[in-house]
Simulated assay, not measured.
Amino acid sequence: MRPTSTRAAVLREFRAPLEVTELPLPQELPAGSALVRISCTTLCGTDAGLWRGALPFVRLPIVLGHEMVGTVVALGAGAGSDAVGRPVAVGSRVVWSESVCGRCRACTVLREPVLCEHRGYGFGQRADRWPYAVGGLAEYAYLPPGAHRLVVAPEVPDTWAASAGCAVKTVVRAFANAGGVRPGAAVVVQGAGPLGLVATAYARVAGAGRVITLGGPAHRLAVAAAFGADHVIDVTAVTDPDERVAQVEELTEARGADLVLDFAGGPTANREGVLMCAPRGTHVVVGLAGAQAAAVPLDVVLMREVRVVGSLNGDVSDLFLGLRFLSACAGRFEWDALFSPPVGLSGAGRAISETASMAAVQAVVDPGLD
Rank of each mutant, 00 (worst) to 15 (best):
V58Y: 04
L23T: 01
G53L: 05
F325M: 07
P154L: 03
S81Q: 13
A206E: 09
F339Y: 10
H66C: 08
T159K: 04
G179T: 03
L319P: 01
T41F: 02
V134N: 06
P145C: 09
V306G: 07
D370V: 02
T200W: 11
S163M: 11
S99N: 02
V343F: 11
A186N: 08
W96N: 03
P17E: 08
E67F: 09
C40K: 04
Y140F: 15
D336K: 06
P194D: 11
A185E: 06
P131V: 08
T268H: 14
A360N: 11
A48V: 04
P279M: 08
V274M: 03
L150C: 03
F263S: 05
R111E: 00
T170C: 00
V168Y: 00
G207H: 12
L338Q: 06
P183F: 05
L302M: 14
H231K: 09
G273W: 13
D230L: 09
S97N: 01
D128G: 07
V245N: 02
A34N: 02
T4C: 13
V90H: 04
A77N: 12
G196F: 11
L338H: 05
G53D: 05
V316C: 00
V73P: 09
W160R: 09
A164W: 03
D299M: 14
V188E: 12
R7N: 13
E249N: 05
G53K: 06
A127D: 05
Q190H: 12
R173L: 04
P61Y: 09
P3T: 14
G228I: 12
E305M: 11
L55Y: 13
L369T: 02
E117P: 01
R126Y: 06
A330C: 05
V274Q: 02
C107E: 00
P56M: 06
Q125L: 12
A359L: 15
F57E: 10
V189Q: 07
G76C: 13
S346R: 13
A174V: 03
T46P: 04
G32Y: 04
G215F: 15
H66P: 08
L115N: 11
C101G: 01
A161N: 04
I62N: 05
A54L: 13
A363M: 08
V69R: 09
E354Q: 14
T213E: 12
V235I: 14
P342G: 03
P297K: 00
F57Q: 13
V232N: 10
D240V: 06
P17W: 00
P30A: 00
G215N: 10
F320E: 07
V205C: 12
P154S: 01
